[in-house]
Amino acid sequence: MSATRVRVLVVDDSVVIRRLIKEILDADPRIEVVGVAQNGQVAIAKVGELKPDAVTMDIEMPVMNGVDAVRAIRKTQPRLPIVMFSTLTERGASGTMDALAAGASDYVTKPANVGSVMESRKNISEQLIPKLVALTGARRLAGATRTALPPAQPPAGMARNGPNVRRTQPFGLLAIGSSTGGPDALASVLTSLPGDLPVPVVITQHMPPVFTKMLAQRLDSSCRLKVTEAVEGDTVQRGRVLIAPGGHHMELRSRGTSVFVHLSDAPPENFCRPSVDVMFRSIAPVYRNRVLGLILTGMGRDGAAGAGILRTSGGEVFVQDEATSVVWGMPGATVMAGQADRVLPLEQIAATVTAALSQNQGVTSMRQATGPVSGGVRA
């Protein structure tokens, strides 16, 4: 790979879109477009010929579509960053989920109106360029450190911050935050959780509207727990996994002995809506020291500040390790802030989380195991 500029192959059946993407990427001094392809079959050949650092891939193309092209490329290039272009439609979301399941690294939403040049340029610049830079940077780092053993706890010098609160009650909630690479990581974790998990699960995954609903449906079809996209007023209860809907922050609130979902249109935090920090911040006063937070792969820092709030309240936070993360932004920021209790490879997360959530549950009634804490007294 180039040690400086990111070498990108652009794949799209539209001449207009190919030209638009190429112009925008070439204008960035960090990126160089080394080739274009009009369908998946040509893309496979050019990946072998040009050896790009990253690929942008359309989904719907003649001859060979983007999903099939991803599957073929992954046979010889298991870690080459591939970013899909998708429309903000149910069909586009479904195709994107298929592509991510096939091994795509991430996706951006395709310009809906190529006639609006300014809007299209802004859309591609703000979404695509940061992802290409982050994904290729993560790949280079992984190539240099892949042989290192993943730490079982935060590295030396990254001491646990916040008061040393001893948790004397079982966990009452599992709260998960994820972004880039999250759908695959969530599938790995959730499909390995038992159907009798003793606590509810809430998730904030950075995704737009329609996509989060499709993600919930896909996960529900393969999990023993019931997975749905959250709606206003949903009750948080054992056996259910609630995913924040795209375009809305998800907060938890208590009423008597119940906990319910409140959806908010407040401004984005960390450039995200839904935001993991918003969700974590709302959880802390409801569940206090009975929260197990989990931060999976993702760009940026969302979740690091919220993890500090959870742990100040006595909760614990596990994060995915660098070696198995697509991008170690969110989990890495949490570790560097001293807010991670455990740093785990993806394949160990489900078993470790299940063990932590199940510990001492037998001595506590169902009401205590899942209900909120109000005014410092268990409801």
Rank of each mutant, 00 (worst) to 15 (best):
P163H: 04
P163G: 06
N164E: 14
N164K: 13
N164I: 04
V165H: 06
V165G: 03
R167H: 01
T168R: 13
Q169A: 15
G172V: 01
L173F: 11
L173K: 07
L174N: 12
A175V: 12
A175P: 09
G177I: 02
S178M: 01
S178D: 10
T180N: 09
T180Q: 04
P183H: 09
P183R: 03
A185H: 06
A185I: 06
A185K: 01
A187T: 10
S188F: 00
S188I: 00
S188M: 02
L190R: 09
L190Q: 10
S192W: 00
S192Y: 00
P194V: 06
P194Q: 09
G195D: 07
G195I: 02
D196V: 03
P198R: 01
P198G: 11
V199D: 07
V199P: 01
V199N: 05
V201P: 05
V202Q: 02
V202F: 00
T204K: 03
Q205V: 11
M207K: 10
M207F: 12
P209Y: 11
V210E: 07
F211N: 11
M214R: 13
A216F: 05
Q217K: 13
Q217I: 01
Q217S: 14
L219P: 03
D220C: 05
S221A: 15
S221M: 03
S222I: 14
C223Q: 04
R224L: 10
R224F: 07
L225W: 04
L225V: 11
V227L: 03
V227P: 04
T228S: 14
T228M: 02
T228F: 00
A230V: 05
V231G: 11
V231Q: 13
G233C: 02
G233N: 14
G233Q: 10
D234C: 08
T235P: 00
V236M: 06
Q237A: 14
G239H: 02
R240V: 01
V241C: 10
I243R: 02
A244T: 12
A244M: 10
P245W: 04
P245K: 05
G246A: 13
G246N: 12
G247L: 03
H248M: 13
M250L: 15
E251I: 09
L252H: 07
L252V: 15
S254C: 10
R255H: 14
G256N: 12
V259D: 10
F260C: 03
S264F: 07
S264G: 12
A266H: 05
A266M: 02
P268A: 12
P268Q: 11
N270M: 07
F271A: 14
F271N: 14
C272R: 03
R273G: 08
R273I: 08
R273E: 08
P274V: 11
V276I: 15
V276D: 08
D277T: 15
V278Y: 03
